[in-house]
Structure formats: structure tokens, C-alpha cells
Design a protein around this nucleic acid. Structure first.
Lengths: 334, 334
DNA sequence: CTGAAAGCGCTTACAG
DNA sequence: CTGAAAGCGCTTACAG
């Protein structure tokens, strides 16, 4: 099979009987070209199926920025978890009218090399990194290469010199605990998120503090990883440990919905027997039965904030991290 | 504000006191470079925060292919509709281990110019286009530029010389009608998908044929657009027209779930009063109450098929369209 | 092991 | 209106 050679501007020019300069002008819609030459070039273009070589063009002409949205999670997870889904929707939407190209890069640890190569390779002018796990080293690539970048969700490892936008997870966990306590619950457990993420840790710590302040024990803890299945499994473990459970804070709506299904499947009523508080205020929170009491996660606001921070960074304006407040959305589940 | 000039290889070479050639070799991990030079270059690279100019590099060195997945729909829709979500997940997953870069381009009509410019601009080596509406002219851009491309879902306008992969929507509609008829339903309606899409038309036509064959009327039709809200609204119109409704085929699970909620909200029982058949066999089909009887949409298979068709096209191997079969998944709703 | 030089495909002042 | 020529930032035979 002969190597495929794409037609170049040179080919177009030759076929149209003009110089490369003129051909280039036609392709770029420069008005000052004679109509004869213009038409000759245009037919040559379609006959040859000419597409400009973007690399050559970009080399000489300034290009609109392109940024990468990187999600170090498995592909199915990214599209399945409503948190990521709405975050990505908001990010792309807020950039829809700008000339900025958005590229979505995802992939579990195994493929993080692909992401790193991408970031290092000069393919992109900036990055929004969503979700940071303890063992991700993407931030190192980012600092080494000085690629303008913003995190959504505080990196687990703390300050790495890259600004982030986050929701106050600690306050959220505490509000959840307080709400359950106020509702008269006394045997309160929690299902955590991934413990190698700041959001997982902080929501747990906040919940603990809320129980401490009420003088209640804080040892009824089972770990999830933010996935639906992990929520169902964790509530089963919780029940095995403590059948008296009457209140439950679940670190994400996705897990909470699964946990409620699991409870209901065992004939345990929500909220009568066990009151459940979620986190995120996703769409599912309203649709599930009973509707979920949960903590608002200002996803759209985080998205637009991250975008404008990054846009600023691209213009050399320094950005500082911001933490958005959350509040409890009271529905029927607790 | 001074225009930001990124450090070039020239700068690195100067700082390290070597030639551009040597600097280039170090950056590209060419082994035959003296260790002194190597180190000098490496420190220069990190001190300067040098990132190679991808355009310049690509111009001279062959690059892995990059393909665009284009979804001519609004961003929030793309991430919200489980059909798109799982399709995109499958596509990206099946390309995860290859060097091929995947770029996701979305946007409603208003932004289709941005997509067209992208496709024309030589940014990408091929495209998988998901979902075609009657007024989309993307296929024209594709043929004009001879960009290797594949559709997921037969284009509404028919054969445009671009191969596609699709599910047999007509057969699905017919199976749905047959199932409802067999279940003893006699007053059967349908909520269609978007009628400017082949999937919308074909599912309706199949349903019609099924009812014809049973000697039943096929005029109880209300149009949706595949969105959740449209499903709820359409069922309300159907009920207003025909309170005796006892069977319903809804052209997507997303609409079906919304329709069922609407029915239940009015005290109408599913399946006792109205039997409902969906389409897609999405995750929600299993989770909703009652679990949804629906038609299987082999999304993952369509994704991998589309990918391999496109990969073939990139190597000049012609591809022909394929239509996958569907079958009814029997659950409790009908 | 290292450098001078050519060349990738395009655009754009600069002349005419 | 049009073309010859320079140059964008990189890589890679080709010499040495």
C-alpha cells in the first residue's frame, strides 16, 4: 500500500496554474485575488480534496488557544458519574462561544502516561484538572512545564503551587451531621468517598466534627469510592456492624441512591428507620424516592470559576484558589 | 502587557551552550549525546520551562492520528443523555490503548460553524459523527474535504457516501408493537423521538407496521425529541387525546422513564393500566420502578464498530455500513 | 558525540 | 492583482 500523501498547497497551486501565495490567499479568503485565479484555485481545492496542514499554518500564524480538561478516571466513570458529567458540560458550555478548543483527556493510572505525554508535548496551552487522587503525579508535570493549570477540587497532596476551586467539603460534612442530630438520630454512620481524595477526607472530617460537637460517637464509618456499587456495599457492611443504625451521611448522591435502594431492598424504610443525607444535589436527588436531602455542590459555578481562572492564567494574571460555600437542601430522605 | 513569548529550542540551546541539534536530541531522548551536554540541556529546559512547539515538531515528524468525535447536540444534552454518554465512553475506551488522540466536539446548530471550521481546518485526521439531524450539513463538509468519517446512526438524508453503523430501529419499533399487542393491549400509542432524525422516523415506522399487521390503528402518535422533558409532555398530550390508552411505545428509555413518572403521578399504574416499552436498555431501565421492558441498543458494539471502520478508512480500506440487530428485553413495565 | 544545513507546508510583508 | 522569498520552530541525514 503506497504511503498516503495528502495534497499540499503546492499541488493546488500547480493544478490551478498560480503561485503558492495566491493559492494560500484564496484558501484564506483574502479578498485581493482576481476572480479567474480564485475560481481556478477553488476547483483545484475540491478536486484534490485539499485540507490545509494545520501544523504548518499554526507555525506561522497565531492560533486560538486550546485547553485540556483532564480527568484522571476511567472513561466509563467519567461519563457515568453525574458530578463529572455536569462539570464537563458546564466547562465546555462556558467555552462554547469562545474560539478556545477544549480537549477532553481521561484515563485511569495505567493511561496517565498518555496524559502526561500530552501535557508535556506542547499540544495544549493550559489545563483544567478534575479530581486528584493521592498517587496522581500530574501536578508535577504541570509545574515542571509551567503549563497554566487549575484544579477543580483541592489536590490531596495540598499546596502544589497550582490554584484550585473547590466546595467547602468540611462544612458540608458537618452540616450533614448536624442535620441528622437535630432530626433526633443517635446512631449515625457515614459512607465516605474515596479516601485518597481531598473531598473524601474532608467530608468525613466535617461529619466527625459535627458528631463530636453533639457528643456522639464517630466510629460508624465505612469507605466507598464515590461509585454507585461501593455505596450499596458499604451500607451492607454498616448494617452488619450496627443494625441499630438510624442516620446516615453518604458522601455523594450517586452512592446515596444506591444505599437507599439497598436499604429499601431489605425492608428498611427511609427516612422512618434510617434518615439519609447525600452530597452533590444532583438531578437524581430530586428524582429518587424518597427525594434526597443533600448538600449543594455548586458544580456550574466551580466550572465557570475554573475556566475564568485559567483564562486569566493564560494572560499571565495570577489566580488564587477559591472555596465555595455549600448548604443543605432539605427534602424527604432526612 | 508584553506579548508572551514561549522559550524555544534555540533559547534552550543558547543557555546550555550547545547547538539546536543537540538540544533537540536531548529533548527527544536520543541516546548519542554526551552526558555533560545532556545535563546542561536538561537544566536549561526546566529552568526555562521549555515545552516543544508541537506544530513545528509535527511538521517534520509523523504524528499519531487524531480523530474527532462530533456530536451536533448541546453540551448538557451530550453529557446527560445516557445514549451519548455510554457511546462516548465506549469510543474513548476502545481507543484508550492506541496512540490515537480523541477530541470531542459538540455544539448545537449555532455552533456548528465552529465544528465545520474544525473539520475543514486540518485539525483532525478523521471523524466519528454521532447523531444526524435533517438540517445538519456536516456531511457535506466531510465529503468535500474527503475527511475519513463514519456515522453512528444512519444520516437522515440517506446515502451521502459516508458509511454508518446503526441499530435496526425499524425492527425495534415493530417488536415493541408486537409485544404490546401480544400482551393484549388494544389502545396503543407511541411517543416518537426527534422526527428530523432517522432513529426517530424508523422507530415510528416500525411501530406502525407492527400495529398494521395486528389490524390496529396507528394514529395515537405524539412527538418527543429524545429528551426527558419531552417524554413527560408527550404522554400528557396522549392522555388528553385518548384516556383509554393501555399500551405505549416510547422511543427512548430516557423519555420512557419520564413518561412513567408522569403516569404514576396521575395515579395511572404501570403496567396494569398502561404497559410501557422503551428503547435503549440503558442503566435506568433496570433501576426505575417498575423495571422497563425495552429494546436493546448495542451501543458498545456500535462504538467499537465505528472505531474500527474509521481506523480502516484511515488506512485506505473501504468500509461499508452495518446495521446491528436488536431484541426485546422483557422486564416488568410491559 | 556534535554541529551546519536542509527542509517540513504554510503565510505574509515586500516588490512589482 | 500576483509572485519570489523569507521565516515560523523543529528534526534529521550528512559530515566530521
Amino acid at each position: 500500500m503506497p504511503a498516503k500523501r495528502l495534497p499540499t498547497l503546492e499541488d493546488v497551486a500547480a493544478r490551478a496554474g498560480v503561485s503558492r501565495a495566491t493559492a494560500s490567499r484564496v484558501v484564506n479568503m483574502d479578498p485581493r485575488v482576481g476572480s479567474a485565479a480564485r475560481e481556478a484555485v477553488q476547483t483545484a481545492v475540491t478536486e484534490l480534496g485539499y485540507r490545509p496542514n494545520r501544523n504548518a499554518r499554526s507555525l506561522v500564524r497565531p492560533e486560538p488557544d486550546s485547553i485540556a480538561v483532564v480527568v484522571p478516571e476511567a472513561e466509563d466513570r467519567v461519563f457515568t458519574d453525574p458530578f463529572f458529567a455536569s462539570l464537563l458540560a458546564s466547562i465546555t458550555q462556558s467555552l462554547a462561544d469562545s474560539p478556545v478548543q477544549v480537549l477532553l483527556a481521561m484515563g485511569q493510572p495505567g493511561n496517565s502516561l498518555k496524559i502526561e505525554r500530552y501535557l508535556r508535548g506542547g499540544y495544549t496551552d493550559g489545563a483544567i484538572v478534575v479530581s486528584h487522587h493521592r498517587d496522581d503525579h500530574i501536578w508535577q508535570v504541570l509545574t515542571e512545564t509551567r503549563l497554566p493549570a487549575v484544579y477543580v477540587g483541592r489536590p490531596y497532596v495540598g499546596d502544589v503551587g497550582i490554584p484550585y476551586v473547590d466546595v467547602n467539603n468540611h462544612a458540608g460534612g458537618r452540616l450533614a451531621a448536624e442535620h441528622l442530630v437535630t432530626a433526633g438520630r443517635r446512631c449515625i454512620g457515614t459512607i465516605t468517598g474515596a479516601m485518597d481524595m481531598a473531598a473524601g477526607e474532608d467530608r468525613l472530617a466535617g461529619w466527625r466534627q459535627g458528631l463530636h460537637e453533639a457528643g456522639l460517637p464517630d466510629d460508624l464509618v465505612e469507605h466507598g469510592d464515590f461509585s454507585s456499587e461501593s455505596g450499596a456495599q458499604a451500607v451492607a457492611r454498616l448494617l452488619a456492624r450496627q443494625p441499630e443504625l438510624d442516620g446516615l451521611f453518604v458522601a455523594s448522591d450517586l452512592m446515596a441512591v444506591a444505599a437507599i435502594h439497598e436499604l429499601q431492598g431489605r425492608g428498611i424504610r427511609v427516612p422512618e428507620d434510617v434518615a439519609v443525607v447525600g452530597f452533590d444535589d444532583s438531578q437524581a436527588a430530586q428524582l429518587t424516592r424518597p427525594p434526597l436531602t443533600t448538600l449543594q455542590n455548586p458544580v456550574a459555578q466551580m466550572a465557570t470559576t475554573a475556566v475564568s481562572m485559567l483564562m486569566g492564567l493564560l494572560e499571565e494574571q495570577p489566580a488564587s484558589s477559591v472555596v465555595l460555600e455549600t448548604e443543605l437542601v432539605h427534602r424527604a430522605s432526612a
